[in-house]
Design a protein around this nucleic acid. Sequence first.
DNA 1: GCTGTTTTGTCGGTTGGCCGACTTTTTAAC
DNA 2: GTTAAAAAGTCGGCCAACCGACAAAACAGC
Lengths: 231, 231
Amino acid sequence: MNIEDSNFILLRQHRLFRQLTYKECSELNIVSGFMNKKKNEFIYLNSLRNDRLYFLKKGYIKIGSYDKEGNEKIKEVLSQGDIFGQLTLEGDTGEQEFAQVIKSEAQICSFTVEDFERILMKRPDLAISFTKLVGLKIKGLQSRITSIMYKDVKARLVDFFIYLAHKERKETADELVFKNYLTHAEVASLVGCTRQTATTFINKLEEEGLVEFTRHHIRIPSISKLQSMAN
Amino acid sequence: MNIEDSNFILLRQHRLFRQLTYKECSELNIVSGFMNKKKNEFIYLNSLRNDRLYFLKKGYIKIGSYDKEGNEKIKEVLSQGDIFGQLTLEGDTGEQEFAQVIKSEAQICSFTVEDFERILMKRPDLAISFTKLVGLKIKGLQSRITSIMYKDVKARLVDFFIYLAHKERKETADELVFKNYLTHAEVASLVGCTRQTATTFINKLEEEGLVEFTRHHIRIPSISKLQSMAN
DNA sequence: GCTGTTTTGTCGGTTGGCCGACTTTTTAAC
DNA sequence: GTTAAAAAGTCGGCCAACCGACAAAACAGC
C-alpha cells in the first residue's frame, strides 16, 4: 500500500472525508502535506497567515498563542481525528498562533484551503457538512464562554472534564479511562485559572471521587455523576 | 413595489445575499417569515430546536438565555444587517435560547435552514461564503474568550467598545458616534461582570475621555486611542 | 404633569482566586 | 544510577470584583 492509499484510508476516519471519492481525495495533494512530528515540535508557529487545513491522524497537539510576556495561552487541545488550521477558510488569524505536539509523536496530514475550496465547489453537500462542523465548534466556544463567565473554578473544571469525556469516549459506558496527555498547567490554561488553583481543585475533585487524574491516565468513574454536578 | 421585491432589496444589504438571483431569493420563501416586532418582544424564546435563519433588517436585538435563577445571560447583541438563528444549520442548541428586540422596533425576515440548504446545494460558492461568515464568528468568539480569561474588567470594556466601534463604524473616521441601544446591565452581561462594576468602569473610561456613554448615544472620540489602550 | 418603574451611581464588607515562594515528587537524559 | 529539569503540592498575603443595599436620576405611561 503506497502513502497515498494509506492517507485515503486514514482521512476517511473523519466523517467529513468519508464522503470523498478516491479521486477527489488525491486532488487535495495530501502527500506533500504529510508530516511526522515528535513531542514538543511545532506544526506551525507564529504564522499570521496560514492557508492550510490539517488533519491529526495520530497523537495529541495543542493550539495556542503567546502573550507579550511570553506566557502561553492555550486555546484548545486536539486528539486523533480532529481537524485544525484555517477552518475559517480565510486569512489573517488576527493573532499569531502555534500548533505544538504534546505527549507523544504525532502524524499530521494537510492540504491547502485553495485545494479544499476547489473540491467544495464541486461538492456542495460537503460544503454543507463542513459548515456544520464549523458550527459545532461555535457551540463549543459558546458553552466555554458561559462556563468562564458564570462559574467558579471548580465548576469550570467539572465542565472541562465532561467535555474531555465526550471527546474521548468511544463506548457508551458511564465509566471512562483514557491516556492523560495534559499537565495541570495546561488544564489551568484551558480552564482559565492559575496552575496553583488548578492543582488545588483537581485534587479536591479527586477527594470527592469524581475524577482520577494521574500523569498517565484520567479516569472518570461516572460521567453521569459528573454531569449532575454541573447541573 | 410589493413585499417580496422590497425583501429582495433589503436582503441584498448583506454581502452574503448580494450574490443571490431574484429567483433564488424567492425560493427562500422569505415572505412567510417576515415580521415586525416591537420593543421587548421576543423573536423566539426557549426554543430548543429552531431551524430558521433570521436576517435583521432594522433595529437591535439581543440573543441570550436564562439561568435557573432566572437571570439573563446575554450572548450577543445584533444590529441592522446581522444574521442570526441556526447558523450551524443543525438542531439542538444545547441550551434554550431567546432573541429579544431592544430599544426600538425591529424588522426581521427569516427562512428555513431547509430552504437555505437547498440553495446552497445549487450554489456552492455561496456555501463557501457562508462558511467564511461562520468562520468570522469563530474568530470573534475566540478573541472574546481571550479577553475574558486574561484581562481585567476595564481592559475588557475597552475591548468591547473597540468591538462595538468596528461593528457600527461606516466611514473610516477616527471619531465615531452612534445610537446607544445598551444599558449598563447589558454591557455588564456581555463583558462578564456585575452591573455595578460595569457602571464604575464605564464612568472611569468617561473620565479618561476614551468613551462617552449616555442613554442616547455612544461617542468614541478616537478609536485609535482606544486601540492603543488595548495593546 | 404626576407617578411608578427602570436605570444609574455609590459605598462598605466579603471572598475567590492570584501571586510569589518554596518543597516534594516524577520524569527524562546521559 | 546519578542528576538536572519538569511537574505537582502547599501556604500566607493580597486585591479585583462580587454582593447587598440604598439613593438619585431618567424615563414611560396615563
